[in-house]
Amino acid sequence: MTYQRLRVPRLAQLVLVIGGTYGGFWLIFDLWLGQPIPRSLMGMYMFFVVVGVLMVFTATEKSTGQLVGPIRALVEDPARRWLRNVVFTVVPALAALGVYLQMQPSDEPPLELRSIHPAPPSSVKIFGKRYDLMSLENPYRHLEKDDPEQFRELVAAGGEVYIRNCQYCHGDKLDGKGPYAQGLNPVPLNFQDIGTIAQLQESFLFWRIATGGPGLPKEATPWISSMPVWEDFLSEEQIWQVILYLYDYTGHRPRSWGHE
């Protein structure tokens, strides 16, 4: 311990360590990694961090004395009456404020446990036919090698479908930032992100596009995704074309079992 040298009061050390841990979590997860810790979990994390820090700070008699001493003095020392009155007013007031803010009604909808991108069913009925998602492949994918010219045409057709139907939400740059994106929750998918279509097979996309939000399986309940059921608006060919376009524009390759 460095307190002999630095002479930072024990109580201040305690606050610094706890605050530092909180700040550290924030720096690492929010700022550096860009994946903030959810508040519900953060609350539990900090609770146990505080418990742990208190345990270390009260493990020895000397350290406990240094920690409790100033607090005891504040409560018992007649000379600090003024400070005491201030503390005894401010602390309950802060607590009251905290409770008030917590109890404030908010427009935040209640928390829901749902997975937005669940495991696909092994087969699905679309356009009145049954597709086996395990073996389903894009019927146009082979043209990429066999007939590049026709392939370009199909991609262009897919682009047309995309601009007419999809870009309002998923954005004209396919980054999930379309004009309507701000109003939607869950947010429209960002296809540029390496974690989305690059991780998926084309058959998965076919399923998600064709059946939309209402086609999500049970584990994705409640079905609040506003993605339409595109099989009602697009043809099978158009869906395959737009899938070609998604991969072509973003430069990602669809995942396939063949290469693994």
Binding site: A119, P121, S122, D132
Partner: peptide
């Protein structure tokens, strides 16, 4: 018999 767990064969076919 589901596609996720791999505990049992799939029955589509």
């Amino acid at each position: 018999h589901n596609a996720v767990g791999g505990r049992a064969p799939l029955l589509e076919q």
